[in-house]
Design a protein around this nucleic acid. Structure first.
Length: 794
DNA sequence: CGTAGTTTTGTTTTT
DNA sequence: CAAAACTACG
């Protein structure tokens, strides 16, 4: 009896074929992760390959984490030496060691798409480009695609055709220039620069080729040209490259994924051994039949048909509704019903949709029904303003050349430094070839700054102190120092804004994460933490322990499986998207169809497809026909008949007549049903006692909910983005402790860094900390947490 | 310089 | 509809 006996024939072949190029075409649910993990075990235990020589690359941190865990469980000795990582983190690790060869500092910063946008705005300013004629977004997209195809600024310029492209070429050059002077890389650069490094420094490549003698790549259908090239270079020497993928699940073309990489693998690597995994261990036959029927409509795919030895199972459920509200209501009700009947648990259910915008209505109904849920995607925890501000401070301390961060927070909280001053410093910096911060240091030499100079000097002093004390402070010390020195939380507390408390909680949550990172990482460093933040997405640290249903896009659901799946918004114009229907390239619809295939195959036992005749989009009511993908499912697999196709709809594959189907309609009462309704707050939870992801931002009538969430142990935060990333650990249980008692009492005179002197009116002993109310002589009445207020008794 | 109020604009998906 | 960008005023 060995661990390999549990594999089927094809899986075994894939596992045991360890030498040379291998292509594993793994249909959905065919156990590809199992194969990869067993293959690694086989290589080590049966072939005596050193764990050190193995590299396994995935796309998401979640996939990497899952594989890591399963490998650790299966491989007894030396499993920690196996390199399991995403493309991005692999490349970052390599660049941190060698990027000085390309003229960057090894402590470079990683810019997210928001940062990129800011850089592009600066570029437009520098080049005097009117953003009405050329959109930043368009330029960024063009640059991103270019990088995906390994086209650098010089080549882009050479190939530029026409006025617009030439201007984009100029922007591209300038954009890279700004990044370089900021010692920063954007997402695409991470791969691009690694390839560049390998190409220009063969000795570095050789070093890694020697190390990674056995390479495995998961989700190969999603690789772009740059990633392909990276893998090709690494595998060139030993040629032990095993790729796993499914051309039918290629859904990232917009991100540069090149489906040809997998379709042409046998041409790229001539002696490739190819194996197909078609036995599905996940879904019922009915679900597979539906998936197969849909995907069959695509041309230019590798023929395969999933089958299962499980029974045919229930029919697929199809439900149609008049409005998106009724659709959402049904999904929430039905899901709750099924859980109550003990057919499934919440966490075994997922609601999938095409666009993030669709999540709102669903969330609203889930909150109303008290159904615990996690929302994946949408606004990331790290995308919130207060978190980005805090991170900007950290990044500024970490990388002195990061102008962007300095500009972001130089006036946050307000220091009376306005746009004019910032522009003047920017100009001065450019003229003297300085970074923005260096220019700030020389502020008294800048003419025409006048009164603002003093404020800048104050800022520079503050940054100096932060930088100087950072090394001895440790990370938690640094973040606390920043919070205190900037008075960021103090300002929030003082503000009248409704969501101030939530934002304060979010900041505490960030402190939690920092403390957690510092305590659980071998060699914690500021760069290390920031890197993790930059490369981690919401999905990655979704907590599966908790019993919550999941709401997410179909894209985000790839690689996951659920007992019960709802696919909402199955309408032509939503799914497939309006864009893809209008696209002249037939592959646009095919990609949407692959997405449908991915969605359907997430379900193990039950699949519910819903359709809403009318839905609100960009402030207009849209009337859409049933999705063509639903019509591609044989009717005998559905438990309901589809609405009759109307004459107009028969032609709906034709773009022009489709357009006639979209009406502009005035709201006629439908609108109200959505936002009215009594929604009750977090505290009321559900019987099981689970606190659910509170979407306080969902409805404006929610005032009390926002406050209530503060005291909930696991409250969601503002904007209805439940805190899937937040952990229960309280900011106050680690890192910072609530004082046993305060040195001042009611009636005492105290002083505050920002607001000056005042009289304590009230002290409330809250769970986390004392809430102190102070009447300041100058600034009026403020309520603040004692821990951060740092009040001194006079 | 800061803010409140007004206008405009939305590519759908994301490492 | 909602977020972002812009404008005008104190």
């Amino acid at each position: 009896m060995s661990i390999y006996d549990s594999l089927n024939n094809e899986q075994k072949q894939a596992v045991m074929h360890t030498e040379g190029p291998v292509l594993i075409l793994a249909g959905a649910g065919s156990g590809k992760t199992r194969v990869l993990v067993h293959r690694i075990a086989y290589m080590i235990e049966e072939k005596g390959i050193a764990p050190y020589n193995i590299l396994a690359i995935t796309f998401t941190n979640k996939a990497a984490g899952e594989m890591r865990e399963r490998v650790d469980n299966l491989v007894g000795f030396g499993s920690e030496q196996i390199w399991v990582a995403t493309f991005h983190s692999t490349c970052v690790r390599i660049l941190r060691r060698h990027i000085d060869l390309l003229g960057f500092d090894t402590n470079f910063t990683i810019y997210d798409s928001d940062d990129s946008k800011s850089v592009m705005k600066q570029v437009f300013k520098n080049l005097n480009i009117d953003n009405k004629q050329l959109k930043e977004k368009r330029v960024l997209n063009a640059i991103s695609s270019a990088k995906d195809e390994l086209i650098g600024p010089e080549q882009f310029e050479r190939d530029a055709f026409g006025y617009d492209e030439q201007r984009i070429a100029t922007c591209y050059k300038e954009y890279q220039e700004v990044l370089r002077s900021s010692n920063a890389l954007d997402f695409d650069d991470i791969i691009f620069k690694t390839v560049e490094l390998f190409k220009t420094h063969p000795e570095v490549l050789d070093n890694y080729s020697e190390r990674f003698r056995y390479i495995m790549v998961d989700e190969y259908q999603d690789t772009n040209i740059a990633q392909y090239e990276l893998i090709r270079l690494l595998a060139k020497k030993y040629r032990n490259l095993c790729v796993v993928g499914d051309d039918d699940q290629s859904i990232y073309k917009f991100r540069g994924a090149n489906i040809r990489n997998i379709l042409d693998f046998e041409q790229h690597f001539e002696e490739a051994f190819v194996i197909k995994l078609e036995q599905n261990y996940r879904s019922t036959q009915n679900i597979l039949d539906a998936a197969n029927a849909v995907i069959r409509n695509n041309v230019g795919r590798k023929e395969k048909a999933l089958w299962t030895s499980q029974g045919e199972g229930d029919k697929l459920h199809f439900r149609q509704f008049d409005t998106a509200y009724e659709e959402a209501e049904y999904i929430a009700d039905d899901l709750e019903r099924e859980v109550r009947k003990a057919h499934v648990r919440f966490k075994e259910c997922a609601v999938l949709y095409r666009t993030n915008a669709q999540s709102r209505i669903l969330e609203e109904k889930f909150v109303r029904d008290g159904i615990p849920y996690n929302l994946v995607g949408g606004v990331n925890f790290y995308d919130r303003k207060e978190i980005k501000d805090m991170l900007a401070y950290l990044r500024m301390v970490d990388n002195a050349r990061d102008d962007l961060q300095v500009k972001r927070i130089i006036n946050v909280p307000r220091r009376g430094i306005g746009q004019t001053t910032i522009d003047r410093i920017t100009t001065y910096a450019r003229e003297h070839a300085l970074t923005f911060y260096e220019a700030c240091e020389e502020v008294r030499d800048i003419p025409s700054i006048g009164a603002a100079a003093k404020k800048i000097e104050g800022f520079v002093d503050m940054v100096r102190v932060m930088r100087a004390s950072a090394p001895e402070y440790g990370l938690r010390g640094l973040i606390n120092d920043i919070i205190e020195r900037t008075g960021y939380i103090a300002e929030l507390q003082a503000s009248e804004e409704e969501d101030a408390e939530d934002r304060i909680d979010n900041i505490y949550e960030l402190v939690n994460k920092i403390v957690y990172y510092e305590d659980t990482t071998d060699e914690p460093s500021l760069s290390g933490f920031l890197e993790e933040v930059a490369l981690v997405s919401d999905l990655d640290d979704m907590d599966e322990q908790e019993d919550r249903a999941v709401l997410m896009t179909i894209h985000a659901a790839k690689g996951l499986e659920f007992e019960r799946v709802y696919i909402a918004g199955c309408e032509d114009g939503v799914f497939p998207s309006y864009m893809s229907m209008m696209d002249t390239d037939p592959d646009a619809i095919e990609e949407e169809r692959r997405l449908a295939y991915v969605g359907i195959t997430r379900a193990k036992k039950d699949l519910t497809i819903t359709y809403a005749r009318c839905r609100m989009n960009k402030g207009e009511f849209q009337y859409n026909p049933v999705s063509r993908f639903v019509r591609e499912i044989p009717e005998h697999l559905l438990d309901n008949t589809l609405p009759k196709q109307k004459k107009v709809e028969l032609d709906s594959y034709d773009n022009d007549s489709y357009e006639r189907n979209i009406f502009k309609a005035k709201p006629f009462g439908l609108g109200n049903g959505s936002t009215a309704g009594n929604v009750f707050g977090v505290g009321s939870g559900i019987s099981s006692g689970n606190v659910f992801g509170a979407g306080s931002g969902i409805s404006k009538g929610f005032g009390s909910l926002a406050t209530g969430s503060t005291s909930a142990s696991k409250a969601g935060s503002k904007n209805g983005k439940p805190s899937s990333t937040l952990n229960a650990m309280s900011a106050f249980s680690k890192g910072m402790a609530k004082a046993d008692k305060l040195e001042y009492g009611v009636g005492d005179r105290v002083s505050h860094v920002k607001y000056g002197q005042g009289t304590v009116l009230d002290i409330l002993d809250d769970v986390k900390d004392y809430k102190v109310t102070v009447e300041f002589d100058g600034a009026g009445k403020k309520v603040m947490y004692a821990m951060f207020a740092k009040l001194k008794k006079i």
